[in-house]
């Protein structure tokens, strides 16, 4: 079985995000970019399935700017076998919407015929949490989102999901789309020899036009602004002062 893992190049989660002064977006020029943390977990899970003999080939795919090649090379260095870049935009500030990403991925699925797609639960830039569910809808496949445990067994997968009240386990028909949550695994670091080897692994470049997908956005971005800022309050000297403040000043207890 082949596994497809979509990986997104996003601002590194440690970077302090700055909204551009003209309100047109977030400043991404000269900012450290990394693989979306959830996607690292998806890549790790795919590699573990390969190591366990459940999977023969791990294909990673990224949609975005040319620089997303670096993200794909990181996945190859972790252990993925080959990569596909869909070069859809030239400006790092242009994000492709989940609906278009899902349509592009659906075309890749038709070509590659994977038995499983492992997505991240959410991209930490747009915080959409939508692509996996949309891809599953477009393909008419089953979906198992927010996975914290995955077991693949022949024509079914058993997935434990993180839900509001705790955990839910479901059994889904293969082929399926699983979106992964943070506690599924801890991604490995790529070793230096593997980073060197990854440079020679195949990386194919395609365009949305070649795949016949229109990526025109459906949402117009009107403005991007800073959230309301909180200012630091006061440091109290002890528990008694804290209680007094909460009672008399804030009136919350």
């Amino acid at each position: 079985m082949r596994v497809l893992v979509p990986v997104k190049r996003v601002i590194d989660y440690n970077v302090k995000v700055r909204v551009k002064a003209d309100g047109t977006g977030v400043d991404l020029a000269n900012v450290k970019m990394s693989m979306n943390p959830f996607d690292e977990i998806a890549v790790e899970e795919a590699i573990r399935l390969k190591e366990a003999g459940t999977v023969d080939e791990v294909v990673v795919v990224s949609i975005g700017v040319k620089q997303a090649q670096e993200t794909l090379r990181t996945a190859l260095a972790m252990g993925a076998d080959r990569a596909i870049l869909i070069e859809a935009v030239t400006d790092v500030h242009d994000d492709i919407e989940p609906l278009s990403v899902a349509k592009l991925l659906a075309e890749v699925v038709k070509q590659e015929a994977p038995g499983l797609v492992l997505c991240g639960k959410q991209a930490i830039d747009n915080d959409m949490n939508a692509t996996g569910q949309m891809l599953s809808a477009l393909l008419g496949w089953s979906q198992a989102t927010f996975a914290s445990e995955v077991g693949v067994d022949g024509d079914h997968a058993t997935v434990t999901r993180e839900v509001d009240g705790g955990l839910q386990t479901i059994k889904v028909k293969m082929p399926t789309i699983i979106t992964v949550d943070l506690r599924l695994n801890e991604p490995r670091y790529a070793s230096l020899p593997n980073i060197m080897k990854a440079k020679k692994k195949p990386l194919e470049v395609k365009t949305p036009a070649e795949l016949g997908v229109d990526v025109t956005p459906r949402l117009q971005i009107i403005s991007t602004k800073e959230p309301a800022q909180r200012s630091a309050g006061v440091i109290v000297k002890d528990v008694n002062e804290l209680i007094a403040k909460l009672k008399d000043e804030a009136g919350v207890i």
Binding site: I11, V26, T224
Partner: peptide
């Protein structure tokens, strides 16, 4: 977006 660091 961006963990609430921007409002779109």
């Amino acid at each position: 977006i961006y963990a609430g660091n921007a409002i779109q």
